[in-house]
């Protein structure tokens, strides 16, 4: 049921990539002068305290699985839904990891085990590589590990919050 919901991308979400661009631009132009006028809610952008359901905990395996979810983004004037993706799995200690697929070098989307890159995340843009824990492999362009999402578990369901940088290799 919930899985199904994830797949049914609404038009609004689908076109969101385009709209985020416009929204971001308008936001930047308009919000900046207003901040000085003490408009407090505008400062709490990007809904950082929201957690979204992504999958059930018992579906999590040691093999990374890619999940997408949508967050409401408050952009000053616009409320938009933005798509987020995560690679979710248990590491060798059994701890849950939910990694952002955005390459820490310049922002391309990394993939798990593409081509002959076994047991690694690989970035097609400048051939950045990350080990299974998402830690950047020295000698490749990325200078930090893939960001990790904050998560919560409630009733066997995994919820993700915002993605934060981690300590480097």
């Amino acid at each position: 049921m919930s899985e199904k919901k994830n797949n049914q991308v609404s038009r609004r979400q689908f076109l969101n990539y385009t709209l985020t661009g416009v929204g971001g631009f308008m936001g930047a132009a308009v919000v900046a002068p207003m901040v000085g006028m003490a408009v407090d809610p505008l400062l709490q952008a990007d809904g950082s305290d929201d957690f979204e359901y992504v999958m059930d905990v018992d579906e999590i395996t040691t093999e990374p699985q890619r999940k997408t979810f949508y967050i409401d983004q408050q952009d000053g004037w616009y409320d938009t839904e933005a798509e987020r993706a995560a690679w979710i799995y248990r590491d060798e200690n059994g701890d849950i990891l939910a990694l952002s697929p955005i390459c820490t070098h310049l922002g391309c989307v990394v993939d798990w085990e593409t081509g002959d890159h076994d047991n690694e995340f690989f970035c097609p843009c400048h051939y950045g590589r990350y080990d299974k824990n998402g830690v950047n492999i020295p000698g490749t362009p990325p200078e930090g590990p893939l960001h990790a999402y904050e998560y919560r578990i409630e009733d066997g369901r995994l919820y993700l919050g915002r993605a934060n940088p981690r300590e480097g290799a």
Binding site: F14, L15, Y17, T18, G21, C103, H105, L106, G107, C108, V109, C123, P124, C125, H126
Partner: peptide
């Protein structure tokens, strides 16, 4: 076309 382009840009942003 706009959707195609924004999606490509999103996937390959760094290059």
């Amino acid at each position: 076309m706009q959707i195609l382009m924004t999606q490509i840009e999103k996937q390959l942003k760094g290059r």
